[in-house]
């Protein structure tokens, strides 16, 4: 790692706002990943399901997990945008 890169990283760490944003993104990614896995397993259950009531419930859960995941992706993107914005301002 060259010196400039090292300075940039230290500077990034010391800037609380940026660090907090980074951390938030990390955890949001973690939760959206879990939601994606959950959605997948619900879809697999739906394929094997023959009970109409259960099917209805599974569909509902899939829709919810999807909506939550979409919300997460949107949040992650907006955090990313803020980061690039602050970088441009700095330059």
């Amino acid at each position: 790692m060259n010196l400039r890169k090292l300075i940039n990283r230290t500077d990034e760490y010391l800037r609380t706002e940026e660090r907090k944003r980074k951390e938030k993104r990390k955890y949001l990614k973690q939760v959206t990943r879990k939601l994606r896995e959950h959605e997948k397993s619900l879809k697999a259950q739906l394929e094997d399901c023959s009970d109409s009531e259960l099917k209805k419930r599974l569909n509902k859960e899939i829709m919810l997990a999807h909506a939550q995941r979409k919300k997460g992706v949107k949040l992650i993107k907006s955090l990313k945008k803020k980061k690039s914005k602050s970088k441009t301002e700095k330059n």
Partner: peptide, 18 residues
Amino acid sequence: LKAAERSLRLDEDEVSAV
């Protein structure tokens, strides 16, 4: 992690949309 979970919860309008 809990804070991230909280931010992904759906409010009443979002639940209605679903």
